[in-house]
Amino acid sequence: MSPQPAMVEVRAVHKSFGPLDVLKGVDLRVAAGEVTVVIGPSGSGKSTLLRTLNHLEKVDSGTVAVDGTLIGYRRSGDRLYELREREILRQRTRIGFVFQDFHLFPHLTVVENLTEAPVSALGRSRKAATATALALLDRVGLADKADAYPRQLSGGQQQRVAIARALALEPKLLLFDEPTSALDPELVGEVLDVIKDLARRGTTMIVVTHEIGFAREVADTVVFMADGRIVEQGPPGQLLDAPREARTRAFLAKVL
């Protein structure tokens, strides 16, 4: 067990889409300051699990807590009451989410993409939000693109803007949903470099990815999911080089 307090505590989460059981009882604990990389075949439920962590996906049963607070529900006795949308939106400002397809706002400039949520969700002044935004753009190496529109940028640049946009809210936890899967191969590196830099600064992150090399280099813990369950988890050296489970070995044999 990690000595640090848990940043994320997932307990017995079930989720189905109609007849399809996507998550079949998932438990996961992520300590503060750790980088957790989730790998597994398509349809194993990795992205769905990630999306339950900020309540983009409701759970059918089980609980998700981030930094000691239940996400999406309020507990009273043995009942969970779903929170109002406004309360859920407030919870999400503490959890950054980076999408596979970036989902930048195309009609806003890069700097407006970064200031929109701090101004409207946290009530920051536009001036302060702009200063933070410019500093973050500098950090992801895009200071000169502040006034560009997203469609004028390459995929890798757009994803770096999307990461800066998530960071603009100063979240306690960052979630990445296959952040490099929509990128041309030569652009993957620049995005991974930004994520590695965040890891070195001690940001708590959960990254769903197919980049095994990245997992080996950056992860504190690698989680292997298959068929709606966590099959095994452990430090990258153990899980990637000496997996205990046959499913893990079979998956790694295909992707390595």
Partner: peptide, 27 residues
């Protein structure tokens, strides 16, 4: 408007009316 736009705005915690006025309707 791409559903991802609404989702991205929701993930950033942007209030609902603001999502409509600033993100969805202009597009």
């Amino acid at each position: 408007v791409d559903a991802g736009q609404r989702e991205a705005a929701a993930a950033l915690g942007i209030p609902r009316l603001r999502q409509l006025r600033r993100i969805v309707l202009p597009q």
